Amino acid sequence: MRDELRAKIIAVCDQKIAAKGDNVGVSFYAFFANKNDDPQRLMEVATWWIQTHQLDHFVKARIIKEMVEQGL
């Protein structure tokens, strides 16, 4: 995953955690605007989320943040 995308995921997770607490869940759609203006980036995250790690639709933001920070 590109460094730019990792930074975006971490920032969004931090925002969600700050707003709703440590148990807030996110889906991979949380990292995109409602309008699909970057399908390549969407597919990159979807592949990481669904194919590589076989995650559920919603996962705790703190877990996603930890995974991205660890380079998984």
Results as ranks from 00 to 15, higher is better:
66 E>T: 07
51 Q>F: 03
10 I>G: 01
28 F>G: 01
44 E>I: 03
6 R>H: 02
4 E>Y: 04
18 A>L: 14
67 M>C: 01
35 K>Y: 13
6 R>C: 08
6 R>D: 03
19 A>V: 00
71 G>R: 01
32 F>D: 04
67 M>Y: 11
36 N>T: 11
9 I>A: 06
30 A>R: 09
43 M>D: 13
3 D>A: 04
68 V>I: 15
1 M>L: 11
8 K>G: 06
56 D>F: 06
23 N>I: 00
45 V>I: 11
50 I>V: 14
18 A>P: 02
41 R>K: 12
42 L>E: 12
42 L>A: 09
31 F>W: 14
28 F>E: 12
58 F>R: 06
60 K>Q: 11
1 M>G: 10
47 T>Q: 13
12 V>K: 07
9 I>L: 09
59 V>E: 14
21 G>K: 02
44 E>R: 05
33 A>E: 14
29 Y>N: 09
27 S>E: 13
8 K>I: 14
55 L>Q: 07
61 A>H: 10
46 A>P: 00
2 R>F: 07
57 H>A: 00
65 K>L: 00
47 T>S: 15
71 G>V: 02
64 I>W: 04
7 A>M: 07
66 E>Q: 15
43 M>T: 07
3 D>F: 02
49 W>F: 06
40 Q>E: 15
28 F>I: 02
40 Q>I: 13
44 E>V: 05
66 E>F: 10
68 V>G: 04
8 K>M: 14
4 E>I: 05
21 G>T: 00
43 M>H: 08
63 I>K: 15
43 M>W: 09
41 R>C: 06
44 E>T: 10
66 E>P: 00
4 E>D: 12
6 R>I: 02
36 N>D: 15
